[in-house]
Write a protein that binds this DNA or RNA. Structure first.
Length: 276
DNA sequence: CCGTTCCTGGAT
DNA sequence: ATCCAGGAACGG
């Protein structure tokens, strides 16, 4: 569920809530959540505060007023929820940070795919997937030339599959990959290495535009997603093709189709996005 | 490179 | 009962 705009929105929501709150207790209810660090190490965060809030791709990274780092990946259904007043434990709550003002930060994850890593700075290298991420699509270095070089690494793959590869671009998921392909006017099954320079330029621009717009709308709530304040996103109102199969294309009126590409559902307009 | 798998719940 | 889901590691 959460892709770059949703993870960024969670980051911003927690940045406005957690600083200067002293942790009084950390409970881990589901040990399989922990990919690095054990329950005792989490419990030892008592007395400390969250001080830093970063995002890299779909990973959230937190710093404390000690040398430790907490990395969180929400995967499909993970949520970090701040409660101003402690609540009774809900179904699928797997961890809870309690603060000395009576508030709490709860990790809830229906499907239990999400993971926590508690480590020092050096240990970040062992967070699976983190060090191999591609460039951030909203960073200045991200360019059509970079995208071209990345696509060239996968001459036999379909474009949609490569856009979902986190070592190529950090943070795109199924929703925004479909929306980006539509805005750029490129078919998801095109060969990744067969794009024209103009198409690569359009894809690069579409990523920047759509991700920026989606962050401004506080992400997409298609099903479960909410930020740290339990607030839904708004970008679902602006989706053009994702899950719009059977509806007319907003640009040309042709019917949006849905196919499977590399195992993922993919929605596109057969007129605006030619297969070639 | 693609299908499967990890999970649970909602839709059909 | 069966299929599907916004992610990503894994095995063949």
């Amino acid at each position: 569920m959460p892709e770059l705009p949703e993870v960024e929105t969670v980051r911003r929501s927690l940045l406005s809530l957690l600083p200067h709150k002293k942790i009084s207790e950390v409970e881990i209810f589901t040990p399989t959540l922990l990919a690095a660090g054990d329950a005792a190490a989490f419990a030892a965060l008592a007395g400390h505060e969250f001080t830093d809030f970063w995002r890299r791709g779909k990973y959230l990274l937190f710093g404390f007023d000690n040398a430790e780092r907490l990395v969180v990946h929400l995967r499909m259904t993970g949520k970090l929820l701040y409660h101003p007043v402690a609540e009774k434990r809900h179904k699928h709550d797997h961890a809870c940070f309690s603060f000395d003002d009576g508030s709490e930060l709860v990790y809830n994850d229906t499907r239990k795919f999400g993971r926590f890593w508690l480590t020092d700075e050096a240990g970040l290298a062992d967070v699976r997937g983190l060090s191999t991420l591609g460039l951030e699509p909203l960073d200045a270095e991200f360019s059509a030339a970079y995208l071209h070089a990345q696509l060239a690494r996968h001459p036999k793959a379909k474009l949609k599959a490569v856009l979902l590869d986190q070592t190529v671009v950090a943070g795109l998921g199924n929703i925004y990959a479909d929306e980006v392909l539509f805005r750029a006017g490129v078919h998801p099954e095109r060969s990744a290495a067969g794009l024209t320079p103009a198409e690569e330029k359009r894809l690069t621009a579409a990523m920047r535009e759509i991700l920026t717009e989606a962050i401004a709308s506080r992400g997409t709530t298609f099903r479960d997603y909410v930020d740290g304040n339990n607030q839904r996103g708004g970008y679902q109102e602006q989706l053009k093709v994702f899950q719009k199969q059977g509806e007319p294309c907003p640009d040309c009126g042709h019917i949006i189709e849905r196919i499977r590409v590399a195992g993922r559902s993919s929605c596109f307009c057969p007129h605006c996005q030619q297969a070639k």
